[in-house]
């Protein structure tokens, strides 16, 4: 892996390159020819109306769903069609829009499980740190299924932190989370970037997008319809109206 890093890091190739990606469910073309790049250490925001294919794109990139066709290159590796665990081991981590808890395991075990394949050394200490970071210490021994909805979102984010990944995909990770905790997540994302992590976030909250993202990618009906810095996207009122449903 370090060899691959050495090879690609210098060339400045984006960490994620997606080309002409397609995926359909029955008659629905959920992802219909998506091409996009995400640069190293970038925090990119993926926005678009409900059902525009954002989560499906995450599923394709992470290997949870197999694409019909198209290319995905991550950190110099062709990963299109590879198994999800193989992609994860290359340094990609993600959250699920509907929190994907290991229900019958404790909160701590949920975090430790994320380190079971990979960086196991010091995992217990990192789990304790992560619990402290996300203010989940008091529920450390509770079953994950007994957490509140917001706490489950936090735990899901905590597992990603435990992965020590080079690219993380966050699917509406702050939806339904208290503003104080949202601030903690935003700060944690900033810290991850300082460590060299690249982040792609799906968000419906424009305030959050403005504060966090270097660049916005807008999807509609399975396609990328616009991309650029937040202010450019917002100034393009056509995009705002058509794709976000409200003028700004």
């Amino acid at each position: 892996m370090s060899a691959a890093e050495g090879k690609t890091a210098g060339t400045g190739e984006p960490i994620l390159v997606v080309r002409e990606l397609h995926c359909h469910f029955g008659g629905i073309k959920a992802v219909n020819g998506v091409s996009l790049d995400v640069g190293r250490r970038e925090i990119a925001g993926l926005i678009g109306p409900n059902g525009s294919g954002k989560s499906t794109l995450f599923n394709l990139i992470s290997g949870t769903v197999t694409p019909d066709r198209g290319q995905i290159r991550f950190d110099g590796h062709e990963i299109g069609g590879r198994k999800a665990h193989a992609i994860a081991r290359l340094g990609l981590a993600r959250t699920f829009q509907i929190p994907a808890m290991f229900d019958n395991m404790s909160v701590t075990e949920n975090l430790l499980a994320a380190a079971a394949e990979g960086h196991w050394q010091g995992a217990r200490e990192r789990a304790a740190d992560t619990l402290a970071l996300l203010k989940l210490e008091h529920v450390a021994d509770n079953r994950a299924s007994d957490l509140s909805g917001g706490q489950q979102k936090l735990l899901e984010f905590g597992r990603v932190v435990m992965r020590q990944a080079s690219l993380i995909l966050l699917d509406e990770v702050t939806a339904g989370v208290h503003p104080n905790i949202r601030k903690i997540i935003v700060e944690a994302i900033a810290r991850l970037r300082e460590r060299g992590t690249t982040v792609l976030v799906i968000e419906h909250d424009m305030e959050m997008v403005r504060n966090v993202c270097d660049r916005i990618i807008v999807m509609d009906a399975g396609r990328v319809v616009a991309t650029g810095p937040f202010n450019n996207i917002v100034r393009n009122s056509e995009v705002m109206q058509t794709y976000l449903g409200r003028p700004q």
């Binding site: 999800a84 081991r89 290991f102």
Partner: peptide, 10 residues
């Protein structure tokens, strides 16, 4: 408890 999530953590 969650097979896709288990795959996603390697």
């Amino acid at each position: 408890d969650h097979e896709p999530a288990a795959e996603a953590i390697g």
